[in-house]
Protein backbone atom coordinates (compact mmCIF):
# COMPACT_ATOMS: atom_id res chain seq x y z
CA UNK A 1 0.00 0.00 0.00
CA UNK A 2 1.24 3.46 -0.78
CA UNK A 3 0.04 6.27 1.39
CA UNK A 4 0.59 9.05 -1.14
CA UNK A 5 0.54 8.77 -4.90
CA UNK A 6 3.58 11.04 -5.17
CA UNK A 7 6.62 11.47 -2.98
CA UNK A 8 7.33 14.89 -1.52
CA UNK A 9 10.26 15.23 -3.92
CA UNK A 10 7.87 14.65 -6.83
CA UNK A 11 5.44 17.17 -5.36
CA UNK A 12 8.29 19.67 -5.13
CA UNK A 13 9.30 18.94 -8.72
CA UNK A 14 5.72 19.61 -9.85
CA UNK A 15 5.61 22.92 -8.00
CA UNK A 16 8.94 23.97 -9.53
CA UNK A 17 7.76 22.94 -12.99
CA UNK A 18 4.75 25.20 -12.55
CA UNK A 19 7.02 28.16 -11.78
CA UNK A 20 7.32 27.87 -8.03
CA UNK A 21 10.39 29.82 -6.88
CA UNK A 22 9.95 31.42 -3.44
CA UNK A 23 9.54 30.07 0.10
CA UNK A 24 9.87 32.43 3.05
CA UNK A 25 13.00 34.51 2.51
CA UNK A 26 14.60 32.20 -0.05
CA UNK A 27 14.46 32.02 -3.82
CA UNK A 28 15.12 28.91 -5.91
CA UNK A 29 16.84 29.48 -9.27
CA UNK A 30 17.37 26.92 -12.04
CA UNK A 31 21.08 26.11 -12.31
CA UNK A 32 22.18 23.67 -15.01
CA UNK A 33 20.49 20.36 -14.30
CA UNK A 34 19.89 21.35 -10.68
CA UNK A 35 19.04 24.33 -8.54
CA UNK A 36 20.61 27.25 -6.75
CA UNK A 37 19.09 28.63 -3.55
CA UNK A 38 19.76 32.17 -2.32
CA UNK A 39 18.34 34.74 0.05
CA UNK A 40 15.64 36.44 -2.01
CA UNK A 41 17.46 39.78 -1.61
CA UNK A 42 20.54 38.25 -3.26
CA UNK A 43 18.68 36.96 -6.32
CA UNK A 44 20.37 39.48 -8.65
CA UNK A 45 23.78 39.53 -6.96
CA UNK A 46 26.84 38.35 -8.93
CA UNK A 47 27.58 34.74 -7.98
CA UNK A 48 31.16 35.73 -7.20
CA UNK A 49 29.94 38.04 -4.44
CA UNK A 50 28.25 35.19 -2.57
CA UNK A 51 29.79 32.39 -0.47
CA UNK A 52 29.22 29.10 -2.28
CA UNK A 53 27.83 25.99 -0.57
CA UNK A 54 27.06 22.62 -2.11
CA UNK A 55 25.35 20.30 0.38
CA UNK A 56 21.82 20.25 1.81
CA UNK A 57 23.32 20.18 5.31
CA UNK A 58 24.88 23.59 4.64
CA UNK A 59 21.34 24.96 4.84
CA UNK A 60 21.19 23.90 8.48
CA UNK A 61 24.30 25.94 9.29
CA UNK A 62 23.30 28.94 7.15
CA UNK A 63 19.96 29.17 8.95
CA UNK A 64 21.28 28.56 12.47
CA UNK A 65 22.41 32.10 13.37
CA UNK A 66 21.33 35.59 12.31
CA UNK A 67 23.65 38.30 10.99
CA UNK A 68 24.45 39.35 14.55
CA UNK A 69 25.44 35.81 15.48
CA UNK A 70 22.31 35.19 17.53
CA UNK A 71 20.81 31.70 17.52
CA UNK A 72 17.65 31.31 15.40
CA UNK A 73 15.45 28.68 17.09
CA UNK A 74 12.51 29.95 15.03
CA UNK A 75 13.30 29.30 11.37
CA UNK A 76 10.33 31.42 10.28
CA UNK A 77 11.97 34.53 11.76
CA UNK A 78 12.57 37.08 8.96
CA UNK A 79 16.28 37.40 9.70
CA UNK A 80 17.87 34.77 7.47
CA UNK A 81 21.45 35.83 6.75
CA UNK A 82 22.47 37.18 3.33
CA UNK A 83 25.54 36.61 1.22
CA UNK A 84 25.45 32.89 0.37
CA UNK A 85 24.38 30.65 -2.48
CA UNK A 86 23.62 26.95 -2.26
CA UNK A 87 23.88 24.84 -5.42
CA UNK A 88 22.20 21.45 -5.41
CA UNK A 89 22.40 18.83 -8.14
CA UNK A 90 19.01 17.23 -7.64
CA UNK A 91 15.47 18.07 -6.59
CA UNK A 92 15.84 15.49 -3.80
CA UNK A 93 18.79 17.45 -2.42
CA UNK A 94 16.76 20.65 -2.75
CA UNK A 95 13.97 19.05 -0.74
CA UNK A 96 16.43 18.21 2.04
CA UNK A 97 17.79 21.75 2.05
CA UNK A 98 14.29 23.25 2.20
CA UNK A 99 13.56 21.15 5.27
CA UNK A 100 16.54 22.79 6.97
CA UNK A 101 15.66 26.36 5.91
CA UNK A 102 11.92 26.00 6.61
CA UNK A 103 11.35 22.74 8.46
CA UNK A 104 8.28 20.82 7.31
CA UNK A 105 7.15 23.69 5.05
CA UNK A 106 6.93 21.45 1.97
CA UNK A 107 5.24 18.58 3.79
CA UNK A 108 2.81 20.86 5.60
CA UNK A 109 1.83 22.61 2.38
CA UNK A 110 1.34 19.36 0.47
CA UNK A 111 -0.66 17.75 3.30
CA UNK A 112 -2.75 20.88 3.79
CA UNK A 113 -3.60 21.37 0.12
CA UNK A 114 -4.48 17.66 -0.16
CA UNK A 115 -6.78 17.87 2.86
CA UNK A 116 -4.64 15.60 5.03
CA UNK A 117 -3.66 18.18 7.66
CA UNK A 118 -6.00 19.59 10.26
CA UNK A 119 -4.73 22.77 11.93
CA UNK A 120 -5.23 22.86 15.70
CA UNK A 121 -7.33 25.79 16.98
CA UNK A 122 -4.99 27.69 19.26
CA UNK A 123 -7.24 27.28 22.29
CA UNK A 124 -7.08 23.51 21.77
CA UNK A 125 -3.29 23.67 21.55
CA UNK A 126 -3.20 25.53 24.85
CA UNK A 127 -5.85 23.30 26.46
CA UNK A 128 -3.88 20.10 25.81
CA UNK A 129 -0.68 21.39 27.45
CA UNK A 130 0.47 19.70 30.64
CA UNK A 131 3.12 20.35 33.25
CA UNK A 132 4.45 23.89 33.40
CA UNK A 133 2.41 24.90 30.34
CA UNK A 134 -0.96 23.69 31.62
CA UNK A 135 -1.70 27.25 32.74
CA UNK A 136 -1.98 28.33 29.06
CA UNK A 137 -5.39 26.64 29.04
CA UNK A 138 -6.61 29.70 30.93
CA UNK A 139 -6.16 32.08 27.98
CA UNK A 140 -9.53 33.24 26.67
CA UNK A 141 -10.15 34.17 23.04
CA UNK A 142 -9.06 37.79 23.50
CA UNK A 143 -5.92 36.65 25.32
CA UNK A 144 -5.11 34.38 22.39
CA UNK A 145 -5.51 37.26 19.95
CA UNK A 146 -3.25 39.46 22.09
CA UNK A 147 -0.48 36.85 22.42
CA UNK A 148 -0.49 36.10 18.71
CA UNK A 149 -0.45 39.80 17.81
CA UNK A 150 2.56 40.28 20.11
CA UNK A 151 4.57 37.26 18.96
CA UNK A 152 3.75 36.28 15.41
CA UNK A 153 3.87 39.51 13.34
CA UNK A 154 4.71 38.64 9.73
CA UNK A 155 7.04 41.58 9.10
CA UNK A 156 9.11 41.31 12.27
CA UNK A 157 8.62 37.94 13.97
CA UNK A 158 7.67 35.01 11.77
CA UNK A 159 7.03 34.31 8.10
CA UNK A 160 4.78 31.36 8.79
CA UNK A 161 1.15 31.95 7.82
CA UNK A 162 -1.40 30.99 10.42
CA UNK A 163 -3.81 28.28 9.28
CA UNK A 164 -5.51 27.76 12.65
CA UNK A 165 -8.57 29.48 14.10
CA UNK A 166 -8.84 30.85 17.63
CA UNK A 167 -11.32 28.10 18.44
CA UNK A 168 -13.51 25.83 16.36
CA UNK A 169 -15.74 28.17 14.34
CA UNK A 170 -13.92 31.31 15.53
CA UNK A 171 -11.56 32.49 12.75
CA UNK A 172 -8.49 34.63 13.42
CA UNK A 173 -10.00 37.73 11.79
CA UNK A 174 -7.99 40.28 13.76
CA UNK A 175 -4.67 39.59 12.04
CA UNK A 176 -3.33 41.40 8.95
CA UNK A 177 -4.12 39.45 5.75
CA UNK A 178 -0.43 38.79 5.08
CA UNK A 179 -0.39 36.58 8.18
CA UNK A 180 -3.41 34.49 7.27
CA UNK A 181 -3.37 34.49 3.44
CA UNK A 182 -2.64 30.86 2.65
CA UNK A 183 -2.55 31.42 -1.11
CA UNK A 184 0.07 34.09 -1.80
CA UNK A 185 1.66 34.81 -5.20
CA UNK A 186 1.61 31.90 -7.68
CA UNK A 187 5.38 31.44 -7.48
CA UNK A 188 5.40 31.36 -3.67
CA UNK A 189 4.87 28.36 -1.40
CA UNK A 190 3.43 29.64 1.88
CA UNK A 191 5.20 28.53 5.04
CA UNK A 192 2.16 27.29 6.92
CA UNK A 193 1.70 27.29 10.68
CA UNK A 194 -0.62 24.33 11.32
CA UNK A 195 -0.12 24.25 15.11
CA UNK A 196 1.08 26.97 17.45
CA UNK A 197 4.81 26.50 18.09
CA UNK A 198 6.49 25.95 21.45
CA UNK A 199 7.77 29.54 21.44
CA UNK A 200 4.19 30.80 21.32
CA UNK A 201 3.10 28.37 24.03
CA UNK A 202 5.95 29.63 26.23
CA UNK A 203 4.97 33.24 25.53
CA UNK A 204 1.35 32.43 26.38
CA UNK A 205 2.51 31.06 29.74
CA UNK A 206 4.40 34.28 30.50
CA UNK A 207 1.40 36.36 29.38
CA UNK A 208 -1.18 34.59 31.55
CA UNK A 209 1.08 34.51 34.58
CA UNK A 210 1.60 38.28 34.33
CA UNK A 211 -2.09 38.88 33.79
CA UNK A 212 -3.05 36.80 36.81
CA UNK A 213 -0.36 38.44 38.95
CA UNK A 214 -1.67 41.89 37.97
CA UNK A 215 -5.17 40.75 38.94
CA UNK A 216 -3.87 39.54 42.29
CA UNK A 217 -4.49 35.87 41.45
Amino acid sequence: MTLHPKSLTEELADWLAQGGRRIGEIVILPCGEGWEVRHVDDAESPASSLTAHKTPEAAREISKYDAAGQYRPLKGAPNLVHGWRLTLDTTAALRDALDFFYPAALGNWVAFTQGRATPSPIRETFARQTGMYRITGLLDEDDCRAVVADNCAYATNCRRRIAWPVAAGVPFDTLPPEKTNLEPAPDEMPVLCLHACSLLVASARTYIKKKRAAAGQ
Partner: peptide, 18 residues
Amino acid sequence: FWKEEPGFREVMHMIDSD
Protein backbone atom coordinates in the same frame (compact mmCIF):
# COMPACT_ATOMS: atom_id res chain seq x y z
CA PHE B 1 11.88 18.60 18.49
CA TRP B 2 9.81 19.89 21.39
CA LYS B 3 11.50 23.32 21.42
CA GLU B 4 12.74 23.60 17.85
CA GLU B 5 11.53 22.99 14.34
CA PRO B 6 10.27 20.79 12.88
CA GLY B 7 7.83 20.20 15.71
CA PHE B 8 6.43 16.83 16.72
CA ARG B 9 3.03 17.63 15.20
CA GLU B 10 4.42 18.30 11.73
CA VAL B 11 7.14 15.70 11.31
CA MET B 12 4.78 13.03 9.96
CA HIS B 13 3.99 15.40 7.07
CA MET B 14 7.71 15.35 6.14
CA ILE B 15 7.97 11.67 5.31
CA ASP B 16 6.82 9.51 2.42
CA SER B 17 7.02 6.08 4.00
CA ASP B 18 4.07 4.03 5.19
